[in-house]
């Protein structure tokens, strides 16, 4: 039986295997994803992002527990960085989530970035789709610990949570572009620490500077102590509120439009590049071009134009 069929049948090993095939970019995974696509689109996708050490994994663990209490099935995709030098990775997000390991209503998958920028792995959207097809009601995607500009999550999740901790620099940080623009909810975690008030105040100040159209969502700033499960119920309530707002205001259509556009563009880009670059490399043209560039007799700009003209003109 094909993997897709087994997954729809509830086979955990088949799901885990397909995720691996997707991650390893096996051509067969595309066919399986085609099969699954019509079974997706039901899960509520939550993105959790923020700097390293902010407590994202611990928070994800508590959010998972809260949704389990409601009887919902939860998928977790947790991303950690790949070493740029060896290609290896240590994926340690599970450490904080081990108590869910034996719960059949929870499926956790760790992914390495494998050189992909933007805070996610190349495979994240597809792995989340597999979880959606498995019948998970909620899929939580935890990005790598991000700095300022890794914002891909916003084009994948319905609701994006930006997790901050006290004492992360002065107020100018809060008005820079980047991750602080993408939050639907902001969380000041480790709120028992010194400076939590200041961080919350600065975030609020930054949000007050935004203009909100009537009926628009105004991101709230919440405080949590994930380790002690303080403030998590309220956070989950707010996330659900945001989800409801998306559906009731019709904003969901705009969001899905953007999300699908981004997904389609990525897929097309990836396949086109593999196809065209592969052809150029196999035909030996690539080494010709590189040699030409070395001696400055061939410029890369016209080389690309020429290849495009050859490959894409009717």
């Amino acid at each position: 039986m094909a993997l897709a069929e087994r997954i729809l049948d509830g086979d955990i090993r088949a799901a885990a295997r397909l995720m691996r095939n997707i991650d390893d970019n096996l051509p067969s995974s595309r066919g399986e994803l085609q099969e699954l696509y019509s079974h997706t689109g039901r899960a509520f996708l939550i993105g959790v992002t923020g700097p390293p050490g902010a407590g994202k994994s611990t928070l994800v663990d508590q959010i998972t527990a809260a949704y389990r209490k409601q009887g919902k099935r939860v998928g977790v995709v947790a991303i950690d960085p790949t070493s740029p030098f060896t290609g290896g990775a240590i994926l340690g997000d599970r450490i904080r989530m081990n108590r869910h390991a034996e719960d059949e209503g929870v499926f956790i998958r760790s992914l390495a970035t494998r050189g992909h920028m933007g805070g996610l792995s190349r495979s994240t959207a597809d792995v989340a789709n597999v979880m959606d097809a498995m019948g998970m009601d909620v899929v939580i995607i935890e990005t790598v610990g991000v700095g300022q500009d890794e914002v891909d999550i916003v084009r994948l999740a319905h609701t994006t949570l930006v997790v901050m901790v006290p004492g992360m620099g002065d107020d100018i940080q809060a008005i820079k572009a980047g991750i602080l623009e993408i939050g639907d909810l902001f969380v000041v975690n480790k709120a028992d620490r010194d400076g939590a008030d200041k961080t919350a105040r600065e975030l609020n100040l930054m949000l007050e500077m935004n203009r909100y159209a009537p009926g628009a969502w105004r991101p709230p700033v919440l405080r949590t102590e994930a380790q002690r499960n303080v403030g998590v119920e309220e956070l989950v309530g707010k996330m659900d509120e945001h989800h409801r707002w998306l559906l009731e205001s019709g904003e969901i259509n705009q969001l899905l439009q953007e999300k699908n556009t981004s997904l389609f563009q990525t897929l097309l880009k990836e396949r086109l590049f593999a196809e065209v670059y592969g052809g150029v490399a196999r035909s030996g043209k690539l080494s010709e071009i590189l040699e030409g560039m070395l001696s400055r007799e061939q410029d890369p700009y016209s080389a690309v134009e020429q290849i495009l003209a050859e490959r894409l003109s009717p």
């Binding site: 990775a89 994926l91 599970r94 998958r109």
Partner: peptide, 25 residues
């Protein structure tokens, strides 16, 4: 060595280990 290591930490029960190994393939 270039492997992807899923590190699950301390105090794991055999059930937790096997379940994690399966989910992580």
């Amino acid at each position: 060595a270039g492997f992807e290591v899923i590190y699950t930490g301390l105090h794991q029960t055999p059930d937790q280990i096997v379940s994690a190994a399966i989910q992580e393939d």
